[in-house]
Structure formats: structure tokens, C-alpha cells
């Protein structure tokens, strides 16, 4: 079983990305959980969301304390939210930032694998504006998930809520996010 933690700010779509990831993992035949951490909810406040992915039925219902992968959707949370908490040196820290992995290592003191991607810029270039989707693309790449499966699921999920034009922008951002780390 793999455990993943998302850091974002309220309104940035970290929870949505977490749920999309669960949908994608299900398509791969995995068992999944996706849940946010609930407190007083305010737009802009730091939030955490979690994924569990497993080949077996997931029975555990406790919180995730020691994730293998941490995805930081908002670069300012590197200081504010202690994103390396519980992350072992074997783990992966994936950060939305224009900085290099070495710069993030210096900043966080984390000595394991650090991957960086300027998801905010990718989303801006694609016109979608939300960094959560290219971050999801990057994470799908990190997890080794089949791209076609993932893209189809993102398309399906976003199409339920968004007009075609916006879906297209997001799919472009998703693709660039995926390719950046492939």
C-alpha cells in the first residue's frame, strides 16, 4: 500500500486532485481511499488531503502519518505547513515551484528525493489557471500510472462539471505536468 499526502490552500483544488487520483487508481484496478483533513475551513487556509492506493482491499481507517509521497500544490506551504513531517528519506517530495530540487532540499532540509515542477506556470500557459491538475499529471508520472488511463479519467471527471473549452485547457496542463516529470 502506498500513502500520499497533499498540501494545498483552501480553494486550490488539492482535495479535488486527491479524489481524481483515487478515480484514476481505481481504473488501474487498485483499491483506494481519498480523504481531506477537516478543521475550520477557510479559503486560503492550509489544508491536507490524503490518498491510499493498494492492490488489496483497504481496511485501515486511521489517518496517514507516514506518507511515501508528498505533493505540495502551493509553494508557500514549504515554510507554512511542514510538508516533510513523517516523510521518510525513502520518500518523494513533489513541489510546485520554479525552484530547483536542490534549492528545495536546502530550504526544507529534506534529503530524500525532491522533484519540482512549475505547475502554476504550466496552468497559466494552458489557460486553466489551477495548479492542481498539472500537479496531478506530475504525480501520476511519479506513481508510474498509465497515462492513457489517467487522462481518460481526468477528462471524464472534469467534463461532468466544466465546459469543453476549460476541460481542454486542463487536459493540456495535465499532459505537460505528466511529461515534465517523465
Amino acid at each position: 500500500m502506498k500513502e500520499i499526502r497533499w498540501h494545498g490552500r483552501g480553494g486550490q483544488g488539492a482535495k479535488t486532485a486527491s479524489q481524481l487520483l483515487a478515480d484514476i487508481n481505481l481504473q488501474e484496478g487498485k483499491f483506494v481511499q481519498s480523504f481531506p483533513e477537516y478543521g475550520p475551513e477557510r479559503s486560503g487556509a492550509p489544508i491536507r488531503a490524503y490518498n491510499r492506493v493498494s492492490d488489496e482491499k483497504i481496511r485501515v481507517h486511521s489517518g496517514v502519518d507516514e506518507p511515501e509521497v508528498v505533493a505540495v500544490v502551493d509553494p508557500t506551504l514549504l515554510q507554512a505547513a511542514n510538508p516533510t513531517e513523517g516523510l521518510s528519506e525513502d520518500g518523494v517530495l513533489l513541489v510546485n515551484t520554479p525552484k530547483s530540487p536542490d534549492e528545495v532540499k536546502d530550504e526544507t532540509g529534506f534529503t530524500g528525493e525532491v522533484l519540482t515542477i512549475d505547475a502554476t506556470q504550466i496552468a497559466e500557459d494552458a489557460g486553466s489557471g489551477y495548479a492542481n491538475v498539472p500537479m496531478l499529471g506530475a504525480l501520476v508520472s511519479v506513481l508510474g500510472t498509465d497515462y492513457e488511463v489517467a487522462e481518460a479519467e481526468v477528462d471524464k471527471a472534469l467534463s461532468k462539471k466544466l465546459p469543453d473549452e476549460i476541460v481542454e485547457m486542463n487536459l493540456q496542463a495535465f499532459k505537460v505536468g505528466y511529461e515534465t516529470l517523465s
Binding site: 481505481l26 483506494v32 481511499q33 481519498s34 480523504f35 481531506p36 477537516y38 483497504i58 481507517h61
Partner: peptide, 8 residues
């Protein structure tokens, strides 16, 4: 734990 957790 159950109400807000997306699960299979």
C-alpha cells in the same frame, strides 16, 4: 472517517 472518505 466514512462520510467524507472516498473509497471503493
Amino acid at each position: 472517517t466514512l462520510t467524507h472518505t472516498a473509497q471503493v
